[in-house]
């Protein structure tokens, strides 16, 4: 590795940290500027953060394992309702419900995955659309007398940390974006592990992967369950942010939005998913001036995108490996 190369990578890291810092100071900057709409824009960013979390969890299933799953809102709903029910009926604190929400969503995914995991491409897509509809209808029909029917559940408590209660949009900003950064780190580690590589091999060629000793059924199942569990965690964040959950928040449209974020941003790429969330969730807000034409503009942009850049805006980069000695000396230490 040459010196200039090292400097540029160090500079790149510095710029990344600086931009993260700049981003995290946005709520403060907005209020310092005295903008009246500051809370509104912070709220938009919160929404983007929540969808980034969800899209990252879907990215594990859709982007990395290559499974066409269009029912992610179902697991998001299970997490949100778990938090709502535990908090309202049993008085649990919000943060205590988070692991249970993850387990509940993961459990539902595990039960559903059994019979459908072997389905390929479009067949899986249709079944998962069915799943999200079943969950929505079950919630609307007040299943087990717990979900409150069409109007849902309200009055969910706000989360508090060491006695500090999150109430304002900028409080939630830091909570949500902490969760986003945590998601980015955890999913990045997962991607560059034995588990993540197995998913990559399955996506590239499932038959070859199976013949190289990878239990393809098991890993697809695991990706489905882990992705769903993290959507459950996002459900907790959703429930305590809006303090209300209702079936209409988890309809098929939400699943499509998440699917779009991953495909548009770049399947299997964290940077792509991040950018995708900003575009899909943020752009309609910026285009508000165009009133009802904004979704037309947005839709047209998507069509153009898919024609000219079907791999997504930021497709995943090849994995990097550092060779240990003596290989590094013989064959070069870094590779893209």
């Amino acid at each position: 590795m040459s010196a200039s190369n090292f400097q540029s990578s160090a500079l790149g890291k510095l710029l990344t940290y600086l931009s993260i810092l700049l981003f995290l100071s946005i709520p403060w900057l907005l209020s310092a500027l005295g903008l009246e709409s500051a809370p509104y824009w912070v709220d938009v960013l919160n929404n983007i953060g929540l969808y980034t979390m969800l899209a990252l969890s879907l990215n594990l299933i859709l982007g990395q394992a290559g499974m066409f799953h269009m029912g992610h809102a179902a697991f998001f709903a299970v997490g949100a309702y778990t938090t709502a029910i535990l908090n309202l009926n049993h008085g649990w604190s919000i943060m205590a419900t988070m692991p249970v929400a993850a387990l509940a969503a993961g459990f539902v995914a595990a039960v559903l995955a059994g019979p459908i995991i072997h389905l390929r491409g479009d067949y899986l897509l249709i079944v998962t659309i069915g799943i999200v509809e079943i969950v929505r209808i079950a919630l609307t029909n007040d299943i087990f007398g717990l979900t409150g029917g069409p109007s849902g559940l309200f009055g969910i408590a706000r989360p508090s940390f060491f006695g500090f209660k999150l109430t304002k949009p900028h409080h939630f900003f830091y909570f949500i974006w902490f969760m986003v950064i945590l998601s980015l780190i955890l999913f990045n580690w997962l991607e560059n592990s034995r588990f993540g590589r197995a998913l990559k091999f399955i996506k590239e060629d499932a038959v070859a992967a199976e013949n190289m000793g990878i239990n393809t059924t098991f890993y697809k199942f695991l990706a489905f369950v882990v992705g769903a569990a993290w959507a459950g965690v996002a459900g907790t964040v959703f429930a305590c942010r809006l303090r209300t959950v209702s079936p209409e928040s988890f309809n098929f449209g939400e699943s499509v939005v998440l699917f779009t974020i991953v495909i548009l941003g770049g399947s299997g790429s964290q940077k792509g998913v991040l950018l995708g969330s900003f575009l899909v969730m943020g752009l309609p807000q910026i285009l508000r001036d165009f009133q009802d034409k904004r979704f037309l503009i947005f839709g047209a942009a998507l069509v153009v995108m898919m024609i000219f850049r079907p791999q997504g805006l930021i497709p995943p980069k090849p994995a990097r490996f550092c060779l240990p000695e003596p290989w590094a000396e013989r064959y070069g230490s870094k590779g893209d």
Partner: peptide, 15 residues
């Protein structure tokens, strides 16, 4: 990909 089946690390140790 061939090394996979002789490795042990699971989900928890990776995450």
């Amino acid at each position: 990909s061939g090394c996979h089946c002789r490795m042990r690390s699971g989900l928890i140790s990776s995450v």
